[in-house]
Design a protein around this nucleic acid. Structure first.
Lengths: 210, 210
DNA sequence: CGCGACGTTGATTTGCCTCAACGATTGTGG
DNA sequence: CCACAATCGTTGAGGCAAATCAACGTCGCG
């Protein structure tokens, strides 16, 4: 917008930039110079509900930080059925990690469940940033470590627990998400049908009445 | 053992050290000084078949690199059933990531499926090494990224595929592991009973005869 | 208002489990 | 080196968890 060379346009929305700084601040400390560098590299994107961010088969060139709203990352099988792999509400990151890091066609699709504001970095920008701000390696190492632990515990849950136990776990782990996301999508996330989730909910309700 | 300040004992077995250098070399380039630093910090451990490396409830203080042999990481549920979460053959890493990184009691157990040789680093040593050799942040970031992708695809598989499809996938992905590991443990990894795996194998055999 | 997507409920089917019995293999102590 | 026990993989009968199919009421949205 502004053409002055001393202004920092195009530059991301201040509130959203604050949000992502807080997120970085969870694992590393950035000085003002580094913050500025980041601010100049971050890109912004808005999605409306049901709008698609990534389609399988494409290259996933970016890694996205969700400032507001919510994304779902899902897999579409040969029969055309969709399976939600995870949800990314505010302050979470989303990408097709394999496509992003290995430059292979994406296996996943990403779509907005609500109107969503994103900040994002392209692969090449991020590689550049790793050089300019080595601390970012640390940040993403820890981010990946935590994601690793999260998916590992999902696997553990899926090989050792019943659907009812998995649902209970989901409720406890993401109480707010349960309110925002339709049962259909939660069922898909849990690996069961909406019909069966409805049954489970009915049963647990009756158990709590006693 | 040796008391000479110029000798490098205790120091790890050369062949094993070469192996782990190759592994680091997959993602980063180390100079001789850095290699030496690493060599002095790495510790060595041998396990006999069925020997336990980690019990749930303990703190997992180390991250292990498998030079030879094979480990299994498993979860024991309230009923006492064991569920294999993953296998670590040569050139793979193993730890209870959550316990290791957050200093919380381990949820997993780790045990040797074969006589196994390990190299390992403690948490504090690794944190020290991140400072001395910042490239290691990059290495472990990529390692975690790949682990993340691997577990994400396991979750995808478990919510979208039948046991038979998951078994086929396992065979294709780890053809050598299938030979080394008992069906009992593979079944546990797939989240099914040994009885049912046996059935699946029988069916697929008959299908291939046609 | 009227349509389509969603959640619920019931009847039936299917994938996978449990239990039990049996050979085959492994491992261990005499 | 053999004998025995223990573990493993296979097979069959029966049971349970979750899927499928279908019908119906409700809600959000054009």
């Amino acid at each position: 917008m502004s053409l002055g060379i001393l202004t920092l346009s195009p530059v991301v929305n201040s509130n959203f930039f604050e949000l992502i700084l807080i997120n970085f601040g969870l694992h590393i400390v950035l000085n003002d110079q580094e913050k500025l560098t980041l601010r100049l590299r971050l890109l912004e994107k808005k999605l409306k509900k049901k709008e698609q961010l990534l389609a399988n088969g494409e290259l996933c060139k970016n890694i996205y930080f969700v400032c507001s709203g919510c994304l779902r990352t899902y897999y579409r099988d040969k029969e055309g059925e969709e399976h939600n792999v995870f949800f990314s509400p505010e302050n979470w990151w989303a990408t097709d990690m394999l496509s992003f890091s290995h430059h292979t066609p994406a296996t996943y699709n990403i779509e907005a469940l609500e109107d969503t504001h994103l900040l994002y970095l392209s692969f090449t920008t991020l590689e550049q940033l790793y050089i300019e701000i080595p601390k970012l390696e640390r940040f993403f190492r820890i981010l990946m470590q935590n994601g690793f632990s999260l998916f590992q515990s999902r696997v553990t849950s899926s090989i050792s627990q019943s659907a009812q136990q998995r649902y209970k776990r989901f409720q406890q782990q993401y109480p707010t998400l349960e309110q925002r996301i339709s049962q259909k999508h939660i069922a898909s996330y849990l690996g069961i049908t909406p019909v069966f989730l409805s049954m489970i909910r009915n049963i647990t309700l009756q158990q709590k009445k006693l």
